[in-house]
Design a protein around this nucleic acid. Structure first.
Lengths: 138, 138
DNA sequence: ATCCTACAATGGACTTTGTCTAAGTCAAGC
DNA sequence: GCTTGACTTAGACAAAGTCCATTGTAGGAT
């Protein structure tokens, strides 16, 4: 059973077939689906689910902090259910493969006060880009 | 006279009124305009310039390495003429204001081999998010 | 078990951002 | 001052996402 689903249920989320399906589709590690991919997989399980519902549901999961929105390429947003553990992303510039990574240290400490322009910084997003082993050997 | 324009001229770029206007619009520090904003400002100087030309011209500047493409929000790409000096971005989550910042240290060294999954990493992109002084006092 | 009602889902129109193409225009070399 | 290939144009098209009026339903109340 889906961890994600459990967590959502525990928050008094009204449970519907559509929401269940979206949560099931998203469950797992190194999952970074676009909204359209989520929709495609959801349709396989529940043919009448609409695109708008998928967008709404993903948006709510993000608001609840149970799913993270990631923009690794400049096209569609991707949704990452691994919201517990802070992590960053490593992206293959050729095939677009994405891995979750856990750098050591805190990038926040790398930004001196003089470079903060009076901002209160709450979050840092890091994206590493390169070539994955598969594309490198091709 | 525009620095950017000088550099482009020096590369044997065929100079046209449209390209000149786009380069002029982009010149400066902490400039991070969307393609549409560039178009709007370009139209003010040269009413008959088309959207496609603005997109083409920006794309060429990016290919030439004279302008950097930035995706700080999840909407339109932004164009940053400060391509000389490596830098990262600091974004206000409320008003969207963007500043160029220069963190100390190299985020690449923070990623242990065990977290590289065999990738050859070529680039790191860091986005700091927070609240700017103006929004904080509102 | 059934009813209510607020919340959720639907689908289709609309918006935003960006790309493509065919035809016309023009900068720069000769 | 020609010629030519590169540049520009307008508008059609596409992808990703939002909005809204209508219909459906989960889950508490009876």
């Amino acid at each position: 059973m889906s961890d994600l689903l459990e967590r959502l249920r525990g928050r008094g989320w009204r449970m519907t077939a559509q929401r269940r399906v979206v949560a099931e589709v998203l469950d797992g590690d190194h999952i970074h689906l676009t909204a359209d991919e989520v929709h495609a997989r959801a349709v396989a399980k529940l043919p009448e689910i609409s695109r708008a519902t998928v967008y709404n549901t993903l948006g709510e999961m993000v608001s609840l902090g149970e799913v993270i929105e990631v923009s690794t390429d400049r096209r569609a947003k991707r949704y990452d259910p691994n919201a517990h553990r802070p992590h960053q992303h490593l992206v293959c510039a050729q095939c677009g493969a994405i891995r979750d990574v856990h750098p050591v240290g805190d990038p926040l400490t790398d930004l001196p006060d003089s470079e903060r322009f009076g901002f209160t910084i709450s979050d840092v997003e890091v994206t590493y880009r390169g070539t994955c082993p598969h594309c490198a050997s091709a």
